[in-house]
Amino acid sequence: MNIAVCLKRVPDTETRIKIAPDGRSMDEAGVKFVLNPYDEYAVEEALRRKEAAGGGEVVAVALGPEAAQETLRTALAMGADRAVLLKTDQRPADPLPVARALAEELRAGGYDLILFGKLAVDDGAQAVGPMVAELLGLPCVSAVSHWEPLEGGGRARREIEGAVEVVEVKLPAVLTVDKGLNEPRYPALKGIMAAKKKPLEVKPVALDAGGLEIVQLALPPERKPGRILGEGPEAVPALIEALRVEAKVL
């Protein structure tokens, strides 16, 4: 089974965001970057599907700056066979140009399965996976938290508001994966060493600008300072009063 898995380099979730002087981007000084947490589930699932099929190849693909090579090495250390970096410093606010460039790369690969994270924790767009599927004319299930292989495809479960959708899909297909699908493995030392020798191809790409222009990136308004109303159950009436009279939410 040949599987592609798309990975994004993102700021660590602990990052405190500072706005860059241009007022339109994040100040990256001192920021630690990691493999997008949801993409770890995607890599793990790719490896498991390949293992279950008893053969094939797992190809990790990232679009991003030179430094995204590290992100790809993480996937190689986990067990991916080779990697492709679509190198660009462009970061359009519109997810469509990114999806177009990834689709272009994936089109000729003849993959049985193309995996994405449910969302990237930086832009949180939850868009690139289904867009790539649409551009390639492939079926897609998004936010998959459970997967059961069937002959020629599989049955996916995805959480929706207050319920679970059960979706059947034929391969080749695109899946975007949610937490809960699996428990990602940690790269072992052996894997990390092996990753250094695995092929990583760098291909420069130029993205179209997309249809959205960044006007401003700003920190959210500070919440106005709150109050401790007291200690223990004796403070409950004061809380009710505050919610009723001051905040008017009860």
Partner: peptide, 8 residues
């Protein structure tokens, strides 16, 4: 950034 910033 999970609500840590607002993009206009």
């Amino acid at each position: 950034y999970a609500g840590k910033a607002l993009l206009r």
